[in-house]
Design a protein around this nucleic acid. Structure first.
Lengths: 158, 158
DNA sequence: GATCGAAATTTCAGGCATGAAGTAATTATG
DNA sequence: CATAATTACTTCATGCCTGAAATTTCGATC
């Protein structure tokens, strides 16, 4: 089976598959690279871990608080995982659990005043770290990259 | 300070920073999405975890074996981590440790015959899974994506 | 050829992560 | 309104992951 320009369609598809695999492997490495850099900066500068930071960032953006399930969906991690991280944040005084009037199974997790103060500073730093790490990415590339990532994510399974 | 088209340079930079942050957040979510899908397929189909798969994939591509440090650099994970994963692979009979003649501190990790047989099958599946998950990514997008990922990775720190 | 710094690896403590199983409260269904 | 299915969350076992400290070996310098 030949296309108009004479290339073999099966060959072309196989090549595309390998190119997609290359993209996946590069995405993995890039994410690990950035994560390891951020982890180190958070650790040495703020005695903060990446998972805790991620949770606090979600909470800072939701002043009314979030339910555990909302948190775990937003961060794309398991329920049990969020339980542990929030436990530690609460015992460090950075977040608070608050009962929900209408549903005794659930509660809202809210960032504490102390957490908000610390988080606002870290968020500003975080933004500038990303800007530095992504310095070689132009506005156009960023837009295209975002759209590629959305294409990947919107491929639902199950 | 104004650019030719009248937009404010500082505003533009801040916008670019936020766009880069959006790209980063989308990358994180896309990678978590794909990883969780792959993890589930490896688990249910082959009783295999993602970290073990990553190590075996690296070993399959290096028939002469790899030193622990080479492995950990290639996968971008810590040394101690690789020790544990290789331990489990060896006790499952999927990999072997082999002494290095010239250096008694080091050794090579090599994939076993059984590991290679299993891995060849999984690798073919893996390629088709990625092709499926990345179905909405065109050849041009893949190329652009790869180049963006390389731009991010080549930003060295420290 | 003794010593000293660097390199390859392991060990360990602590935290992160999943999936499965458990508890309790809510909602839907007959 | 009884009960069955669902939802919100926790607990647990197991494995992954890091960073720091320890061990052993290597290589260079004096």
């Amino acid at each position: 089976m030949l296309t108009q320009d004479g290339t073999d369609l099966v060959e072309t598809e196989a090549g595309l598959g390998k190119q997609r695999l290359r993209l996946w492997l590069q995405m993995l490495k890039a994410v690990r690279h950035v994560e390891s850099d951020l982890r180190e900066r958070l650790r040495s500068g703020y005695d903060m871990t990446l998972p805790r930071f991620d949770v606090l960032a979600a909470l800072l953006a939701a002043p009314e608080g979030l339910k555990m399930t909302e948190l775990s969906q937003q961060l794309m991690v398991s329920n049990g995982n969020v339980t542990g991280i929030v436990d530690r944040l609460v015992s460090d005084g950075l977040a608070e659990r608050e009962t929900v009037e209408s549903d005794r199974r659930a509660f809202r997790v809210r960032i504490s005043e102390q957490g908000a103060i610390q988080m606002r500073e870290m968020a500003a730093q975080h933004l500038s770290w990303i800007d530095e790490l992504f310095a070689d990415v132009s506005e156009a590339d960023a837009a295209r990259g975002i759209s590629i990532m959305l294409d990947i994510r919107h491929k639902v399974h199950r």
